[in-house]
Simulated scan of single mutants.
Amino acid sequence: MARPGHSAWFLLVSTATLLLASGASAQGSCANATFPAGRSFARCSTLPVLGASLYWNYHAANGTAELAFRAPSATGGWVAWGINTDGTGMAGSSVFVASQSANGAVSVLMTVLESFSPSLKNGTLKFDVPVGPSAEYGGGTYTMYATVALPGNATQQNTVWQAGPLSGGAVSPHPMSGNNLKSVLRLDFLSG
């Protein structure tokens, strides 16, 4: 015969163990990533949609984050990551967009998404980028690197990311349904 309260205690311990295991599993999916020699990151977050992950080192002394964004894509596709200083959606975001040309050269465009039909002109962002972006493609995945000055020197930022197709070598609109509409997250660069 079970003691009174024993079942509740067992349920509480089981639930806590399950939550810890699921957290470790989610963390493990990005924590085991490898990068080229000379690159390592103290923190990571498996983003909730589009198979993407963000890795970073936060430097409190100057309010910057050295980061890597990784997302799967076909060779005929593009991926993007950025910060929205004006709100929580895509419009108004300052983003990095990685894609590759027909000859396989990978490039990164820096642009502000001024509307839901942006012009995608390469330019400056709404925050400083002390170390300009670079990207690589391999194994069906883009990885972009950059160092950004976190807007307002605030560790909590509204982040956005996206993926879509190329058409004739140019960035085409991403799907306007499903996970493509869920790719926003308020992220704390200090605590993760």
Rank of each mutant, 00 (worst) to 15 (best):
S134Q: 00
S134V: 04
S134L: 00
A135E: 00
E136R: 07
Y137A: 01
G138Q: 06
G138K: 08
G138S: 15
G138L: 05
G139P: 05
G140W: 07
G140A: 08
G140I: 03
T141N: 12
T141P: 02
T141Q: 13
Y142A: 04
T143N: 04
M144R: 01
M144L: 12
M144N: 01
Y145P: 01
Y145K: 03
A146L: 05
A146K: 01
T147Q: 14
T147W: 01
V148E: 08
V148R: 10
V148A: 12
V148W: 06
V148I: 15
A149R: 12
A149K: 15
L150I: 02
P151I: 00
N153K: 14
N153M: 11
N153C: 01
A154S: 14
A154W: 05
A154Q: 15
T155H: 15
T155M: 09
Q156G: 07
Q156F: 03
Q157R: 10
Q157W: 11
Q157M: 08
N158L: 11
N158P: 11
T159F: 05
T159N: 11
V160N: 02
V160K: 02
Q162N: 14
Q162A: 09
A163R: 15
G164N: 12
P165R: 00
P165K: 02
P165W: 03
P165T: 04
P165F: 01
P165Q: 02
P165D: 07
L166P: 02
L166Q: 08
S167G: 13
G168M: 01
G169W: 06
A170H: 09
A170D: 12
V171T: 04
P173D: 15
P173A: 14
H174F: 07
H174M: 12
P175W: 02
P175E: 09
P175T: 00
P175V: 00
M176H: 14
M176D: 15
M176A: 13
S177Y: 09
G178P: 11
G178M: 12
G178Y: 12
N179Y: 05
N179F: 10
N179Q: 14
N180L: 02
N180E: 14
L181S: 00
K182L: 12
K182A: 10
S183D: 04
L185D: 06
L185M: 10
L185F: 05
R186M: 14
R186S: 15
L187N: 02
L187V: 06
L187F: 15
D188P: 05
D188C: 08
D188E: 11
F189K: 08
F189T: 04
F189S: 09
F189H: 10
L190Y: 09
L190A: 15
L190V: 00
S191C: 02
